[in-house]
Design a protein around this nucleic acid. Structure first.
Lengths: 154, 154
DNA sequence: CCGTCATGTAACATATGAAGTTACATGATC
DNA sequence: GATCATGTAACTTCATATGTTACATGACGG
């Protein structure tokens, strides 16, 4: 079962970065990601290794996107956040000789790879830029809705 | 990430059941599944609710298949073992109003459903009977291989 | 019936891994 | 060199899956 709360969390942080025109500190990201600074650094370290973000120390330091958001897809992020294989069964590494698992893997091995490929393909079709645009649209709509409510009360 | 060690474990148990012509006790299944009887009952309870297996108390009691193995697919088992949704992101139930997650779900909601559908479709194409046959084939081959080794030593 | 064997299930214990925390080192800017 | 930020190791929760104990329920065989 795919259940990555980290991907969701990281996206919060990245959208926040796009909004700000300057480096964002781990402290600030921790707010956006509803966690604490050290966890932010830990997670962002993965993205940095993949060349998605850049970090700077000292005054005015913090995190920035290392690439154009239009060149970053959700697949990049998903991989960087650490999802080696999407589908895995049993204790393949523990009992590689188990005949039951051999039979299952023979019957479904291709399926596992196929499902994973489909998932990543779709993730790869969504850029961070597209997501940010959609998010901004929702935000504007949300604000409008709030204002309408205020007017209605008056 | 799909990572169901239970499916693999349950398959061990079910193949064992097919082999035996009589009810198999939780104790015996626990051996086959490398766990203990209570866990077996817990897991098998899910299969029973789906009408895949049947349990009988008392002398000569135990677990039996409730259906022809040719009519049971791995999808049935996967579902019964408890995998409501394969793909899920974030804490949708916690922050249903979160705009970031709304954007992600809008962009990938169909993908999630699609990936899950593909996975279940492939699982649905493999019957327990087919798996059992393949397993037996491997077992025979394995035995043969062992005998060959013995002969070679002589 | 009554003893035995098996499942059914609640309640608790343990283990595993993710997430959070503390502490301190490193490097950059002022 | 004081301050601000990341980098990282070590430790502490926390959640969840799994294992365990204990006992109730029901079935069969005498």
């Amino acid at each position: 079962m795919i259940r990555d709360s980290r991907l969701s969390s990281v996206l919060h942080g990245l959208l926040h970065m796009i909004g700000a025109g300057e480096p964002v500190t781990s402290e600030q990201l921790a707010q956006a990601m509803a966690t604490n600074p050290v966890v932010v650094r830990r997670v962002m370290a993965g993205l940095r290794e993949q060349g998605l973000v850049h970090s700077e120390k000292g005054h005015g330091g913090g995190w920035t996107l290392a690439r154009d958001p239009a060149d970053i897809t959700l697949a990049d992020i998903y991989r960087a956040v650490g999802a080696p294989t999407i589908v895995a069964m049993g204790h393949r590494s523990e009992n590689p000789g188990c005949l039951v698992e051999q039979a299952v893997n023979d019957a479904l091995g291709d399926t596992f790879r196929e499902v994973e490929a489909l998932f990543l393909k779709r993730l790869g079709a969504v850029t961070l830029e597209a997501l940010a645009r959609d998010f901004k649209r929702r935000l504007a709509k949300h604000k409008q809705s709030l204002e309408d409510q205020i007017h209605a009360v008056k």
